[in-house]
Protein backbone atom coordinates (compact mmCIF):
# COMPACT_ATOMS: atom_id res chain seq x y z
CA UNK A 1 0.00 0.00 0.00
CA UNK A 2 2.99 2.27 0.58
CA UNK A 3 3.82 1.69 -3.02
CA UNK A 4 0.45 2.90 -4.12
CA UNK A 5 0.64 6.24 -2.33
CA UNK A 6 4.17 6.77 -3.61
CA UNK A 7 3.13 6.17 -7.23
CA UNK A 8 0.08 8.32 -6.73
CA UNK A 9 2.22 11.11 -5.34
CA UNK A 10 4.68 11.04 -8.25
CA UNK A 11 1.79 11.02 -10.69
CA UNK A 12 0.14 13.97 -8.97
CA UNK A 13 3.37 15.97 -8.96
CA UNK A 14 3.96 15.34 -12.66
CA UNK A 15 0.42 16.25 -13.61
CA UNK A 16 0.46 19.33 -11.37
CA UNK A 17 3.68 20.44 -13.05
CA UNK A 18 2.09 19.90 -16.46
CA UNK A 19 -1.02 21.88 -15.59
CA UNK A 20 1.04 24.67 -14.01
CA UNK A 21 3.27 25.04 -17.02
CA UNK A 22 0.26 24.99 -19.32
CA UNK A 23 -1.32 27.71 -17.19
CA UNK A 24 1.92 29.66 -17.08
CA UNK A 25 2.21 29.47 -20.83
CA UNK A 26 -1.06 31.34 -21.13
CA UNK A 27 0.34 34.49 -19.51
CA UNK A 28 4.05 34.44 -19.63
CA UNK A 29 7.01 32.88 -21.34
CA UNK A 30 10.68 33.91 -21.25
CA UNK A 31 10.52 34.98 -24.91
CA UNK A 32 7.83 35.36 -27.50
CA UNK A 33 7.47 31.80 -28.82
CA UNK A 34 6.81 33.08 -32.33
CA UNK A 35 9.62 35.56 -32.46
CA UNK A 36 12.21 34.61 -35.05
CA UNK A 37 15.82 35.27 -34.25
CA UNK A 38 18.10 34.74 -37.23
CA UNK A 39 21.18 35.47 -35.23
CA UNK A 40 20.50 32.73 -32.70
CA UNK A 41 19.55 29.66 -34.75
CA UNK A 42 20.05 26.17 -33.34
CA UNK A 43 21.75 27.39 -30.20
CA UNK A 44 22.56 24.83 -27.53
CA UNK A 45 20.98 25.28 -24.08
CA UNK A 46 22.56 28.22 -22.29
CA UNK A 47 21.76 30.68 -19.54
CA UNK A 48 19.98 32.90 -22.05
CA UNK A 49 17.97 30.07 -23.66
CA UNK A 50 17.67 27.34 -21.05
CA UNK A 51 16.53 24.71 -23.50
CA UNK A 52 18.24 26.15 -26.59
CA UNK A 53 16.69 27.57 -29.75
CA UNK A 54 15.25 26.00 -32.86
CA UNK A 55 16.11 26.34 -36.51
CA UNK A 56 14.36 29.72 -36.69
CA UNK A 57 15.98 30.99 -33.51
CA UNK A 58 12.84 30.62 -31.44
CA UNK A 59 13.22 29.83 -27.73
CA UNK A 60 12.43 26.12 -27.10
CA UNK A 61 11.40 26.65 -23.47
CA UNK A 62 8.89 29.31 -24.43
CA UNK A 63 7.47 27.14 -27.15
CA UNK A 64 7.22 24.16 -24.78
CA UNK A 65 5.33 26.23 -22.23
CA UNK A 66 2.92 27.58 -24.80
CA UNK A 67 2.67 24.21 -26.56
CA UNK A 68 1.72 22.51 -23.29
CA UNK A 69 -1.60 24.27 -23.49
CA UNK A 70 -2.45 22.89 -26.90
CA UNK A 71 -1.30 19.37 -26.01
CA UNK A 72 -3.14 19.23 -22.70
CA UNK A 73 -6.23 20.68 -24.31
CA UNK A 74 -6.21 18.25 -27.21
CA UNK A 75 -5.40 15.28 -24.99
CA UNK A 76 -8.07 16.04 -22.40
CA UNK A 77 -10.86 16.82 -24.82
CA UNK A 78 -10.09 13.87 -27.05
CA UNK A 79 -10.09 11.44 -24.14
CA UNK A 80 -13.24 12.94 -22.67
CA UNK A 81 -14.98 12.78 -26.01
CA UNK A 82 -13.91 9.19 -26.68
CA UNK A 83 -14.70 8.05 -23.13
CA UNK A 84 -18.17 9.54 -23.02
CA UNK A 85 -19.14 8.32 -26.49
CA UNK A 86 -17.46 4.93 -26.16
CA UNK A 87 -18.90 4.28 -22.71
CA UNK A 88 -22.43 5.17 -23.72
CA UNK A 89 -22.25 3.07 -26.86
CA UNK A 90 -20.70 0.15 -24.97
CA UNK A 91 -23.26 0.37 -22.17
CA UNK A 92 -26.22 0.39 -24.49
CA UNK A 93 -24.78 -2.33 -26.68
CA UNK A 94 -23.84 -4.68 -23.85
CA UNK A 95 -27.00 -4.08 -21.86
CA UNK A 96 -29.52 -4.28 -24.69
CA UNK A 97 -27.87 -7.20 -26.51
CA UNK A 98 -29.90 -8.72 -29.34
CA UNK A 99 -30.09 -6.90 -32.66
CA UNK A 100 -29.16 -3.51 -31.19
CA UNK A 101 -25.89 -5.01 -30.02
CA UNK A 102 -25.36 -6.73 -33.35
CA UNK A 103 -25.81 -3.50 -35.32
CA UNK A 104 -23.71 -1.34 -33.01
CA UNK A 105 -20.91 -3.87 -32.85
CA UNK A 106 -20.89 -4.35 -36.62
CA UNK A 107 -20.31 -0.61 -37.10
CA UNK A 108 -17.88 -0.57 -34.23
CA UNK A 109 -15.81 -3.42 -35.61
CA UNK A 110 -15.76 -1.81 -39.03
CA UNK A 111 -14.34 1.34 -37.45
CA UNK A 112 -11.85 -0.70 -35.42
CA UNK A 113 -10.62 -2.33 -38.58
CA UNK A 114 -9.18 0.99 -39.78
CA UNK A 115 -5.95 2.10 -38.17
CA UNK A 116 -6.88 4.99 -35.86
CA UNK A 117 -4.57 7.43 -37.59
CA UNK A 118 -6.00 6.63 -41.01
CA UNK A 119 -9.51 7.16 -39.73
CA UNK A 120 -8.45 10.44 -38.16
CA UNK A 121 -6.84 11.50 -41.44
CA UNK A 122 -10.06 10.86 -43.30
CA UNK A 123 -12.12 12.71 -40.74
CA UNK A 124 -9.69 15.62 -40.71
CA UNK A 125 -10.09 15.92 -44.44
CA UNK A 126 -13.80 16.38 -43.77
CA UNK A 127 -13.66 18.61 -40.71
CA UNK A 128 -10.62 20.67 -41.58
CA UNK A 129 -7.15 20.67 -40.05
CA UNK A 130 -7.39 22.67 -36.89
CA UNK A 131 -7.35 21.98 -33.18
CA UNK A 132 -11.02 21.06 -32.91
CA UNK A 133 -10.90 19.03 -36.06
CA UNK A 134 -8.15 16.96 -34.45
CA UNK A 135 -10.08 16.53 -31.23
CA UNK A 136 -13.19 15.45 -33.05
CA UNK A 137 -11.35 13.14 -35.43
CA UNK A 138 -9.25 11.46 -32.75
CA UNK A 139 -12.25 11.24 -30.44
CA UNK A 140 -14.20 9.35 -33.07
CA UNK A 141 -11.21 7.20 -33.91
CA UNK A 142 -10.76 6.14 -30.26
CA UNK A 143 -14.40 5.65 -29.29
CA UNK A 144 -14.68 2.13 -30.78
CA UNK A 145 -11.98 0.66 -28.54
CA UNK A 146 -13.62 2.20 -25.48
CA UNK A 147 -17.00 0.91 -26.60
CA UNK A 148 -15.58 -2.55 -27.02
CA UNK A 149 -13.98 -2.64 -23.59
CA UNK A 150 -17.07 -1.27 -21.84
CA UNK A 151 -19.35 -3.68 -23.68
CA UNK A 152 -17.20 -6.60 -22.54
CA UNK A 153 -17.38 -5.46 -18.94
CA UNK A 154 -21.14 -4.91 -19.18
CA UNK A 155 -21.74 -8.34 -20.69
CA UNK A 156 -20.19 -10.06 -17.72
CA UNK A 157 -21.72 -7.67 -15.17
CA UNK A 158 -25.26 -8.03 -16.42
CA UNK A 159 -25.22 -11.72 -15.57
CA UNK A 160 -24.39 -10.99 -11.94
CA UNK A 161 -27.14 -11.51 -9.44
CA UNK A 162 -27.16 -7.93 -8.21
CA UNK A 163 -28.46 -6.82 -11.60
CA UNK A 164 -31.34 -9.25 -11.24
CA UNK A 165 -31.81 -8.04 -7.68
CA UNK A 166 -32.18 -4.52 -9.06
CA UNK A 167 -34.84 -5.72 -11.49
CA UNK A 168 -36.70 -7.50 -8.72
CA UNK A 169 -36.69 -4.26 -6.73
CA UNK A 170 -38.55 -2.72 -9.64
CA UNK A 171 -35.79 -0.40 -10.79
CA UNK A 172 -35.94 0.75 -14.40
CA UNK A 173 -33.39 -0.23 -17.01
CA UNK A 174 -31.76 3.21 -17.15
CA UNK A 175 -31.43 3.36 -13.38
CA UNK A 176 -29.93 -0.14 -13.27
CA UNK A 177 -27.53 0.76 -16.05
CA UNK A 178 -26.21 3.91 -14.42
CA UNK A 179 -26.45 2.94 -10.77
CA UNK A 180 -25.28 -0.65 -10.88
CA UNK A 181 -23.46 -1.35 -14.10
CA UNK A 182 -21.59 1.85 -14.89
CA UNK A 183 -19.84 2.25 -11.50
CA UNK A 184 -18.52 -1.29 -11.80
CA UNK A 185 -16.97 -0.49 -15.18
CA UNK A 186 -14.81 2.29 -13.76
CA UNK A 187 -11.65 0.20 -13.53
CA UNK A 188 -11.34 -0.76 -17.22
CA UNK A 189 -12.49 2.71 -18.29
CA UNK A 190 -9.80 4.45 -16.22
CA UNK A 191 -7.08 2.18 -17.49
CA UNK A 192 -8.04 2.67 -21.09
CA UNK A 193 -8.65 6.43 -20.73
CA UNK A 194 -5.21 7.03 -19.28
CA UNK A 195 -3.48 5.18 -22.06
CA UNK A 196 -5.67 6.99 -24.56
CA UNK A 197 -4.37 10.29 -23.30
CA UNK A 198 -0.94 9.16 -24.35
CA UNK A 199 -2.15 8.00 -27.76
CA UNK A 200 -3.91 11.32 -28.28
CA UNK A 201 -0.78 13.40 -27.68
CA UNK A 202 1.27 11.09 -29.90
CA UNK A 203 -1.35 11.04 -32.64
CA UNK A 204 -1.57 14.78 -32.54
CA UNK A 205 2.17 14.89 -33.13
CA UNK A 206 1.85 12.37 -35.93
CA UNK A 207 -0.90 14.40 -37.57
CA UNK A 208 1.12 17.57 -37.09
CA UNK A 209 4.05 15.81 -38.67
CA UNK A 210 1.90 15.02 -41.67
CA UNK A 211 0.92 18.62 -41.79
CA UNK A 212 -2.66 18.01 -40.69
CA UNK A 213 -2.28 19.06 -37.08
CA UNK A 214 -2.35 22.46 -35.50
CA UNK A 215 -0.97 24.64 -38.30
CA UNK A 216 2.47 26.18 -37.73
CA UNK A 217 3.83 28.45 -36.45
CA UNK A 218 1.67 27.77 -33.35
CA UNK A 219 3.65 25.31 -31.19
CA UNK A 220 2.42 21.95 -29.95
CA UNK A 221 4.64 19.30 -28.48
CA UNK A 222 3.83 17.09 -31.38
CA UNK A 223 4.82 19.52 -34.11
CA UNK A 224 7.91 20.57 -32.15
CA UNK A 225 8.99 16.95 -31.98
CA UNK A 226 8.31 16.57 -35.66
CA UNK A 227 10.16 19.76 -36.52
CA UNK A 228 13.16 18.71 -34.46
CA UNK A 229 13.63 15.46 -36.31
CA UNK A 230 15.73 16.70 -39.27
CA UNK A 231 18.12 18.42 -36.87
CA UNK A 232 18.63 15.51 -34.54
CA UNK A 233 22.36 15.32 -35.27
CA UNK A 234 23.10 19.01 -34.91
CA UNK A 235 20.64 20.00 -32.22
CA UNK A 236 19.43 17.05 -30.19
CA UNK A 237 17.57 19.33 -27.74
CA UNK A 238 15.01 20.21 -30.35
CA UNK A 239 13.53 16.73 -30.25
CA UNK A 240 14.70 15.77 -26.80
CA UNK A 241 12.80 18.28 -24.71
CA UNK A 242 9.37 17.96 -26.31
CA UNK A 243 9.85 14.18 -26.26
CA UNK A 244 10.75 14.30 -22.60
CA UNK A 245 7.74 16.48 -21.88
CA UNK A 246 5.44 13.97 -23.61
CA UNK A 247 7.04 11.01 -21.84
CA UNK A 248 6.80 12.58 -18.38
CA UNK A 249 3.20 13.58 -19.00
CA UNK A 250 2.28 10.03 -19.98
CA UNK A 251 4.07 8.64 -16.96
CA UNK A 252 2.24 11.08 -14.72
CA UNK A 253 -1.14 10.29 -16.27
CA UNK A 254 -0.62 6.55 -15.97
CA UNK A 255 0.52 6.69 -12.35
CA UNK A 256 -2.28 9.01 -11.41
CA UNK A 257 -4.80 6.91 -13.32
CA UNK A 258 -3.81 3.74 -11.48
CA UNK A 259 -3.90 5.51 -8.15
CA UNK A 260 -7.32 6.98 -8.93
CA UNK A 261 -8.68 3.63 -10.00
CA UNK A 262 -7.60 2.04 -6.71
CA UNK A 263 -8.89 5.01 -4.75
CA UNK A 264 -12.30 4.75 -6.40
CA UNK A 265 -12.59 1.03 -5.73
CA UNK A 266 -14.07 0.29 -2.31
CA UNK A 267 -12.61 -3.19 -2.46
CA UNK A 268 -9.14 -1.68 -2.11
CA UNK A 269 -10.14 -0.13 1.18
CA UNK A 270 -9.30 -2.08 4.26
CA UNK A 271 -6.55 -4.00 2.47
CA UNK A 272 -3.91 -1.99 4.23
Amino acid sequence: MKNFTFNGLIGSILIAALLLSAALGLFWSPYDPMKLGFTARLEAPSSAHWLGTDEFGRDVLSRLLVGARASVWIGTLTVTFATVCGTLIGLVSGYARGWIDAVIMAVNNALLAFPGILLALGLLAVFGANQYGIIFALGIAYSPSMARVVRGAVLSLREREFIEASKVMGNGELYTMFRHILPNCVAPITVLATSMFGWAILSESALSFLGLGVPPPAPTWGNMLAAGRPFIEQAVWLGLFPGLAIALTLLGINLLGDALRDKLDPRMRGLK
Partner: peptide, 8 residues
Protein backbone atom coordinates in the same frame (compact mmCIF):
# COMPACT_ATOMS: atom_id res chain seq x y z
CA UNK B 1 -22.57 -11.77 -6.54
CA UNK B 2 -25.97 -10.50 -5.41
CA UNK B 3 -24.65 -7.33 -3.77
CA UNK B 4 -23.23 -4.45 -5.81
CA UNK B 5 -19.60 -4.27 -4.65
CA UNK B 6 -19.52 -0.51 -5.01
CA UNK B 7 -22.35 0.28 -2.64
CA UNK B 8 -22.29 0.47 1.15
Amino acid sequence: SSLNPRMT
